[in-house]
């Protein structure tokens, strides 16, 4: 059995990812220097460099998370699928708005979002003073092999 979660990776996401890396490192050149110097000590810098280099050349991107067991279902129960479903169809302006739309307690929704963020099922996007949940999932496939 295999569960594949395919993430939403559109042009806007790719652009945001490239911007995020530029903000973090300043420029592709400075990141390249950092990668050459720290390549052994800091492997994530090397990945960031190769990623930013590719994105700056207009690369497309695909992201997926793969499970070979049932463990995802201990994270992705009915109420969290409901959150994902709602976020697929609606843009919310705050966690409070999401809690209200789903008639859920704020504290419980906040906890669910924390868990889902850790699993990279959602991201929290800054919107003024608020952090707004956005679904990252495009498709979930269950393959019985």
């Amino acid at each position: 059995m295999k569960v594949i979660i395919r993430n939403r990776v559109d042009g806007e996401y790719v652009h945001e990812k490239a911007d995020e890396l530029m903000r973090k490192y300043g420029s592709l050149d400075s990141l390249g220097q950092k990668a050459s110097i720290e390549k052994c000590a800091s492997p994530s810098v090397v990945d960031d460099y190769e990623l930013l280099k590719a994105l700056s050349k207009g690369a497309e991107m695909e992201e997926e998370t793969i499970f070979h067991d049932y463990s995802i279902f201990s994270v992705l129960g009915e109420t969290r699928v409901e959150i994902l479903d709602y976020l697929q169809k609606n843009r919310v302006r705050s966690i409070k708005e999401l809690a209200s739309a789903l008639s859920r307690d704020y504290k419980n929704i906040y906890y669910d979002l924390t868990v889902m963020r850790r699993m990279e099922l959602i991201s929290m996007v800054k919107n003024g003073k608020e952090r707004v949940p956005v679904s990252r999932v495009k498709r979930i496939e269950i393959l019985f092999e």
Binding site: M61, E63, F67, D69
Partner: peptide, 12 residues
Amino acid sequence: MKVLKKRIYIHR
């Protein structure tokens, strides 16, 4: 060009 990112869960 294409970037493929995968996260494979070996265990929880």
